[in-house]
């Protein structure tokens, strides 16, 4: 089978109307996929953004942050998922835990590096104008670090969207079903079709972040 045939078969699979309705239909699977991804990303952001900003602001614990992030990056996502499934049972928890572990390092490291890297003169000027710690952090450091923070969120989001395919192994659907089921049935058009959908989702996430960047990053900091 060559690449052209793969693409053609995947296209046939993608455009078959039967694949666009019902519990195993593309819209439903897409929503599941997005839901798990968004949940994991939000939890990871709730952990990593404040922690990274605080460590970057105080300058204390930077080494620990980088070490923890490196450690988290090295955890094999699939292994963690299967371990949690084996110890507990199938469901949402075994999917969300590895995805959080996956999403936290890039957000944490970029937030930390971003806030830490803010020009000392800016911090000094903010303090000189009478701003206090939290004011400096929220009104000067975070806005200036925003491009880097968004980059971390984007990296995390793309990795989570690409990896949320593993939800199928915990029996809770998502676009991974097409890949996993297809693999089990040797139904390659389903595998390729499912993959294409994941890639499209990743590209959409990329584009969404371009929009978010426009909205959130001051024009003085773009480029």
């Amino acid at each position: 089978m060559n690449l052209a045939d793969q693409i053609k078969d995947a296209w046939t699979w993608l455009t078959a109307s039967a694949h666009w309705s019902g519990g195993d239909g593309i819209p439903h699977r897409l929503l599941e996929h997005l839901g798990y991804s968004a949940l994991a990303l939000v939890i990871a952001a709730l952990i990593a953004l404040p922690l990274g900003a605080l460590v970057g602001h105080t300058g204390r614990g930077g080494f620990a942050v980088v070490t923890v992030a490196n450690f988290a990056r090295s955890i094999p996502t699939l292994g963690l998922l299967l371990l949690v499934v084996t110890v507990t049972s199938i469901g949402l928890t075994p999917v969300i835990i590895p995805l959080i572990a996956l999403a936290t390092p890039p957000i944490l490291v970029n937030t930390y590096e971003g806030v830490r890297g803010v020009d000392p003169d800016i911090k000094d000027a903010a303090r000189g104008m009478g701003m206090t710690g939290p004011g400096i952090l929220l009104k000067a450091e975070v806005p200036v670090a925003m491009p880097l923070i968004l980059l971390g969120l984007r990296t995390a989001a793309i990795q989570v969207v690409a990896t949320a395919t593993i939800a199928a192994y915990a029996g809770i659907g998502g676009l991974g079903r097409y890949i996993v089921d297809g693999l089990a049935r040797k139904d390659y058009p389903s595998v390729v079709g499912g993959s294409v959908l994941v890639v499209l989702l990743a590209v959409i996430v990329q584009l969404a972040f371009v929009g978010i960047r426009r909205a959130v990053v001051s024009r003085g900091l773009r480029n």
């Binding site: 793309i158 969207v161 690409a162 990896t163 395919t165 991974g176 890949i179 693999l183 390659y188 595998v191 390729v192 499912g194 993959s195 994941v198 890639v199 990743a202 590209v203 996430v205 990329q206």
Partner: peptide, 12 residues
């Protein structure tokens, strides 16, 4: 785009 691919799909 490469970065956003699910690894399993790329293996396939």
């Amino acid at each position: 785009v490469l970065y956003g691919l699910p690894s399993l799909a790329l293996f396939m």
